[in-house]
């Protein structure tokens, strides 16, 4: 075999492709499931924490800042390993899918909270004052006047951060979540061929390039209209 054949055999082997493509496709389904779950709970929790933080309750805010700083500082892989391999020692065993979902949700929540919080802080004081002067309560003002504007402003940074964290679903491979990378790695070791890894890469591209494009579209769309 010449060099090109070796290369094609290693990365574009038709037999290996035919055999393992279904596994990779199934991995894509799992990746999408984890990703959607993480985006939903992470952003919801981040928004809830930012909203809670604006009430400026002394003890509560300290806890929020502590949580946010910890989860922004720790590499997600460290937390995943700690939870997956550590918690069983104290009698708590969580399924690998749940560990990946919970940990990535917490990481996304930490970053999302900071982004939403800076959005809330950037709304001019006059907006609060105008709403309160008409008799709206603090919570009503937050919900109807402040958050809608803050969330709108945070769409671009939040989109970027969400994409970055969602890609970390690949970390599920180290604890056995049957997502794309796990399927590709398994297939690669069974077949002794790198083709499944290439298929895995293509699967990520197929999933995330549309998301990146969507993110860019959201950014330009929400970058305009501020009064």
């Amino acid at each position: 075999m010449n060099g090109l054949d070796v290369f094609l055999d290693a990365f574009f082997n038709p037999a290996v492709t035919a055999k393992y493509l279904p596994d990779i496709l199934w991995g894509m389904v799992v990746t999408v499931q984890v990703a959607l779950a993480v985006v939903f709970t992470g952003i919801a929790l981040g928004l809830a924490l930012a909203a809670l933080r604006s009430f400026r309750l002394p003890g509560v805010n300290l806890l929020i800042v502590f949580f946010v700083d910890i989860f922004r500082a720790l590499p997600p892989l460290v937390v995943i390993l700690l939870v997956y391999f550590g918690l069983p020692n104290v009698g708590i065993s969580l399924p690998s899918f749940a560990v990946l979902w919970v940990v990535l949700s917490l990481v996304l929540a930490a970053f999302a909270e900071e982004i939403f919080w800076s959005g809330i802080l950037s709304i001019r004081k006059g907006q609060w004052e105008a709403a309160r002067s008409t008799g709206l309560t603090f919570a009503q003002t937050l919900g109807h006047v402040i958050l809608p504007q803050a969330v709108r402003m945070t769409v671009p940074p939040l989109t970027n951060r969400t994409i970055a964290i969602t890609k970390n679903t690949a970390l599920g491979a180290v604890i056995g979540v049957p997502e794309i990378l796990m399927q590709a790695q398994t297939a690669q070791s069974f077949s002794g061929n790198a083709t499944p890894l290439l298929l895995g890469s293509l699967a990520y591209i197929a999933l995330f390039v549309p998301v990146v494009i969507l993110g860019r579209w959201l950014e330009t769309r929400f970058a305009w209209g501020r009064a």
Partner: peptide, 8 residues
């Protein structure tokens, strides 16, 4: 208010 403060 001086700066109107309408909800944009």
């Amino acid at each position: 208010f001086q700066s109107f403060n309408l909800y944009p």
